[in-house]
Design a protein around this nucleic acid. Structure first.
Lengths: 120, 120
DNA sequence: TCGCAACATCGTAATTTTCCGATTGATCCT
DNA sequence: AGGATCAATCGGAAAATTACGATGTTGCGA
């Protein structure tokens, strides 16, 4: 993947977090973690139809992206890092509804500009 | 990628949208689109350090995920599909702050359970 | 109609992701 | 110490992504 130079740090981070979440197994891990508050690796292995090593790798990806955190010495216990989720939501909001844009938020942009068809 | 059978339709869709957003160039496209309301392909090619064909492919990915929409006959004009963004934000909220969880939303889950260290 | 300009799509090479089994490292119990 | 259990990491194969140039396609003006 080529590096895009003009990117802000925020965009960079958003892309990384989105990428980490962009996998069915990892979304499942996140929802499970949200439901249970905290899980051992084994709990997640039971839930997912994947090998233990694979689940472990997914956990690593999520951890590196800051989406989950945790692990106690010798008894790894994961949980959601809600700050990151909140940050992501915030990012989306700022994208979608920049200051002074209350009007646009309602109907979307396409109606105001001459663009709205689906297929070319 | 293996298909995870237990996945809800929502989780499936979330993973797809996240995946589409999980690329620096595509995040840039989205932010640019938000800033300008609507863009021709050429505008985006000017902004990104990528070949025209590559940008076109990124646009296709975003379109297939429902993140952008648009294109008029013969003069393709893209814009954000804010509904999708809103849906995604909603999904994140439901994950992070399920009903009857006001307390947990503030401090995160980790403090309440015995799990909070960073490194193993 | 011819050619141009704007995009999409195709073919394809390089890189990355995804998954698994095997191995290693830690902890705990006997 | 020896064995069992749980989880991370390694090595490698298969599949997907990313990027590019070349080629199609469409609409417009000369």
């Amino acid at each position: 993947m080529k590096t895009i130079e003009g990117l802000t740090e925020e965009e960079e981070r958003a892309a990384a977090v989105f990428r980490a979440l962009g996998n069915p197994a990892r979304v499942r891990i996140v929802t499970e973690l949200a439901r249970r508050q905290a899980c051992f690796t084994g709990d997640l292995v039971d839930v997912l139809p994947l090998a233990q090593s694979t689940v472990s790798q997914h956990l690593k990806v999520l951890k590196e992206a800051g989406i989950i955190s945790g692990a106690i010495e010798g008894n790894p216990c994961y949980c959601l890092d809600e700050q990151t989720i909140h940050w992501l939501v915030d990012f989306c909001y700022r994208i979608c509804c920049p200051p002074g844009e209350e009007a646009a938020a309602a109907g979307g942009c396409c109606e105001t500009v001459e663009c709205g068809a689906d297929e070319r």
